[in-house]
């Protein structure tokens, strides 16, 4: 059994070597997951904001549904996307199966509910604080929504990071719809799964550490940016 120290050493050696295959896999992981998070934010932020601010019939049920969808098993999402994009499926003509686009679609579906639910929670909490003040200042619901989105921007960044974490860590869906094709759809997680199935556990774990470092760097970068925007002291 490999020790964690071995794996960290493997990870560092992998990074130091600048192995082009590893670079390719890391870049594809980033491209797929970042694109998915952007797409999911385009869906999830307005949806979550609407759920927080507007009152309409079925809203409660929708909130429950969005929260429940946060727990979607990636494999189920992968299966649904696979069956949709399959040549025999309704969207087969698009020819997207086994491409990065298919992986982006699957991860978008996985991440959008997370971003929507976290956005809703953050805005709903802020709304209880802000509502009366904003109404007193003459805000209508659209004004309120805009104000909350801006003032909750750091909570939204956290929501996006949570979504990115889920996207980067997810393997079940991208394996099914991407096919883990070498140089085409192989990402960090599917590479880890492959190395595990080859019994190359130190390499698999080493790749896991590379993934962990990648998420660490991304989080640190975003939080550092946040600290800079927020100013020297705490609000």
């Amino acid at each position: 059994m490999p020790t964690f120290l071995d794996s960290i050493r493997t990870a560092l050696a992998l990074i130091a070597s600048g192995d082009p295959d590893l670079v390719e896999i890391v870049l594809l992981s980033l491209r797929v997951s970042l694109t998915a998070v952007v797409a999911a934010a385009a869906i999830g932020v307005p949806l979550g904001a609407a759920l927080a601010v507007f009152r309409f019939p079925g809203r409660g049920a929708l909130v429950v549904l969005v929260n429940a969808l946060m727990g979607l098993p990636p494999v189920v999402v992968g299966l649904v996307v696979y069956l949709s994009l399959s040549a025999s499926g309704p969207l087969g003509v698009l020819g997207l199966l086994y491409t990065p686009a298919a992986m982006i679609i699957a991860q978008t579906i996985l991440v959008a509910p997370i971003i929507a639910a976290l956005t809703r929670a953050a805005l709903a909490e802020m709304l209880t604080e802000y509502d009366e003040t904003l109404r007193a200042l003459g805000a209508n619901r659209i004004d309120t929504l805009g104000t909350l989105l801006w003032d909750a921007r750091f909570a939204l960044v956290t929501a996006l990071l949570a979504g990115l974490g889920r996207a980067l860590a997810e393997v079940g869906a991208v394996m099914l719809v991407g096919g883990n094709i070498d140089h085409v759809t192989r990402v960090m997680t599917t590479a880890i799964a492959l190395e595990t199935s080859r019994g190359a556990l130190p390499l698999a774990l080493g790749l896991g550490f590379v993934l962990l470092m990648l998420t660490l760097v991304l989080n640190a970068a975003v939080l550092g940016l946040r600290a800079r925007l927020e100013g020297p002291a705490h609000a």
Partner: peptide, 20 residues
């Protein structure tokens, strides 16, 4: 929601596609 997903998909058509 579905449209947005599809739009995202099409936006990525620049990525390698199958059936080439």
């Amino acid at each position: 929601m579905k449209t947005a997903i599809l739009a995202a998909g099409f936006a990525l058509a620049a990525l390698p596609a199958v059936a080439q």
